[in-house]
Write a protein that binds this DNA or RNA. Structure first.
Length: 599
RNA sequence: GCCUCAGUAGCUCAGUUGGAUAGAGCAACCGCCUUCUAAGCGGUAGGUCACAGGUUCGAAUCCUGUCUGGGGUACCA
């Protein structure tokens, strides 16, 4: 990590220079003011740092400060530093580049670090109702969440991914009602029930998939018989509790399994699937949480309901916990659930949730409940994602409004897993995402994932061609490979920075050298990108980075031939290709996107 | 009304602890395949960073206000 080394040298120089800087007190907050950046103008060196922020502390002019610090820098050749205004400009030597490249070759996984090693994170995301197919918005949370899990782990965090199944509450009743009436419709159609039975015009869940669930239920003859019998015994067979429970359980299982299958297809993995009904209601943990809340004096009864004094924690109004009909609101089991998260044996110190922006107003009351229960609200973190707009025929459509809505499965079928995942995380979660189905499905060149995958495949192709005999263009005879596979392998295993000299020396055009240097510095900076992506929960840093590397590689490919008649030179250049290929593969893996060896 | 996200090139978006001349992809235009994959490369053009103030040596970035758009503001989840 060249950047880190420069920052260390700067810190040492600053300590040494302090007496000449009006006895500046050098501490962590001062040192963190050094921001190393890559200047656009090559005359400003390869890395630059602005020291103007020290002007206030030292009461000195920035150019003077830069002069003083540069005089104290050690381990840097004077010709590699320049001072322009308040800037210190560093020139990166080929020796440093070679060292960085060799380090990438030797490390098993690029970008691996321990910046989040003290974090024990429970990440909950997607958490859909098992009342229908996942929609495109769920796809964003799925891609985002799984990428964040992978990125956090690459930074050393202990992470558990969890899916909360909302299988209790009124929505489950709604899907049960809907499945019931679709079944009645189907039975009427085949004459098993009289035509006189009336089906409501509007069902809570109008989607066509509901009828599929009903048909699947009725496909078992004994179930169909039970359904008809229950119908004969009750005016409204939904009053038959046994049937209702069976329909509910059946619907949940079928719909949940469909969600799980799709998420599996998307390579989105959860360690835990927590059922609201089984984990919270059946084990009766909600009551215990409510008692503790009440014992602390944070609840009261009014208008036949039980309320939580969330206003004491900054919420705009108090919230109902138990409705006047005796049932809980959504909030109540969710409070118990979050209470449980804090109490797990894993001793998590970060309870992280990904929620859609439509749940924004829900945060203060949940945070309040967490605090009321004696947990540290600072360990509760919500990553809010703006919603996804579906664009069909160039028009925005609101999800769920249409009877036949486009599901996540439809999208994946059209554009594939890789493109879906890459697209979904390629923009900041703070921005609403436009998902243009026609565009994503038709225009492959418009989708950056192919650009990155192609760069990876191109690296693999070069590495393959290097060690395989190929037919001569003119004679058709098989010629010897550019390098021997065994020789290349041992060259790579025993690679020293010195052995890379040919890679840098063989390029004579300054422009080509600049491309090579930019490429190596980019590869060297992968760890920084991985750290930032974890710290800010921002996988789009990775997509951006991968596109940068790919672009820089394609440029380099254009100006420098890798496979040459000189084995020594070829080997050295192949090490660069290996480093690029490793980094691209690692970056794609952090996003859960495949890195094809051929395209 | 209040809370919140956004407003940057024709379009979609990067730009996170404030730093040198604001970037990328797509679209447009001009070039480049006898050679390791043209799903590629080089070049041209394209900007009042919504607007107005403020803080600062310095603002797309921080503060205040205004405008526009998304989301929320349930005893739904």
């Amino acid at each position: 990590m060249i950047r880190h080394r420069i920052l260390e040298q700067l810190a040492a120089a600053l300590h040494k220079a302090a007496p000449n800087l009006n006895n500046l007190a050098v501490d962590e907050s001062v040192l963190s003011g050094f921001k190393l950046e890559r200047p656009r103008n090559p005359e400003h060196g390869d890395y630059a740092v602005n020291v103007s922020f020290l002007a206030r502390h030292t009461k000195m002019a920035p150019p003077k400060i830069a002069e003083v610090i540069s005089a104290c820098l050690e381990g840097v050749r004077p010709e590699d530093i320049s001072v322009i205004g308040g800037y210190l400009n560093f020139k990166i030597t080929e020796a440093m580049l070679a060292e960085a490249l060799a380090a990438i070759i030797h490390v098993e996984k690029t970008g691996l670090n321990d910046s989040q090693a003290d974090k024990r994170i429970l990440l909950e995301y997607v958490s859909a109702n098992p009342t229908g197919p996942l929609h495109i918005g769920h796809g964003r949370w799925a891609a985002l969440g799984d990428a964040i899990v992978r990125i956090l782990r690459h930074n050393g965090a202990f992470v558990t991914a969890e899916f909360y199944i909302n299988d209790a509450g009124v929505q489950m009743g709604n899907i049960t009602t809907s499945v019931y009436w679709r079944a009645v419709e189907l039975l009427k159609a085949k004459g098993a029930l009289p035509k006189s039975v009336e089906v409501p015009d509007v069902l809570p869940y109008p989607g066509e998939y509901v009828a599929d669930v009903s048909a699947l239920y009725l496909s078992d003859e004994s179930r169909e018989q039970r359904f008809i019998a229950a119908h004969a015994n009750h005016a409204d067979a939904l009053a038959d509790e046994a049937l209702q429970a069976e329909l509910k359980a059946f619907s949940k299982t079928v719909l949940l399994e469909a969600q799980q299958a799709l998420l599996g297809n998307l390579r989105v993995h959860f360690e835990n699937w927590i059922s609201e009904k089984e984990y919270l209601y059946d084990r009766d943990v909600i009551g215990g949480t409510l008692e503790r809340l009440s014992a602390q004096g944070y609840t009261y009864e009014a208008e036949d309901a039980l309320w939580f004094k969330s206003t004491e924690f900054g919420d705009e109004k108090d919230r109902v916990l138990r409705k006047s009909d005796g049932s809980f609101t959504y909030l109540t089991p969710d409070i118990a659930y979050h209470d449980d998260k804090f109490n797990r044996a894993e001793r998590y110190n970060c309870i992280l949730n990904i929620w859609g922006a439509d749940h924004h107003g829900y945060i203060p009351r949940m945070r309040g409940a967490i605090e009321a229960l004696g947990h540290d609200p600072n360990q509760f973190e919500v990553l809010l994602g703006q919603l996804v707009n579906l664009i069909v025929d160039g028009e925005r459509t609101r999800m769920g409004k249409r009877r036949k809505m486009l599901t996540l499965q439809d999208v994946v079928d059209e554009v594939g897993v890789d493109a879906t995942r890459f697209w979904m995380v390629s923009k900041s979660a703070d921005s609403a995402l436009d998902f243009d189905v026609d565009l994503a499905a038709s225009a492959s060149s418009e989708n950056p994932v192919f650009y990155v995958q192609y760069a990876h495949a191109r690296c693999c192709s070069i590495l393959r061609n290097a060690v395989e005999p190929a037919p001569n263009v003119d004679t058709g005879e098989m010629t010897a490979p550019f390098v021997q596979a065994d020789a290349l392998k041992s060259f790579e295993a025993g690679l020293t920075p010195h052995a890379l000299a040919l890679l840098f020396d063989s390029l004579t055009e300054p422009r080509d050298q600049a491309v090579l240097k930019a490429l190596v510095l980019l590869l060297d900076g992968f760890e920084d990108t991985v750290r930032d992506a974890a710290r800010l929960r921002a996988p789009h840093f990775i997509t951006q980075y991968l596109q940068d590397v790919s672009s820089q590689f394609h440029s380099f490919y254009g100006v420098c031939r890798i496979l040459t008649p000189e084995p020594a030179l070829t080997q050295a250049r192949l090490m660069l290709i290996r480093a690029i290929q490793k980094t691209l593969a690692q970056g794609l893996d952090l996003l859960g996107v495949s890195a094809p060896e051929k395209m």
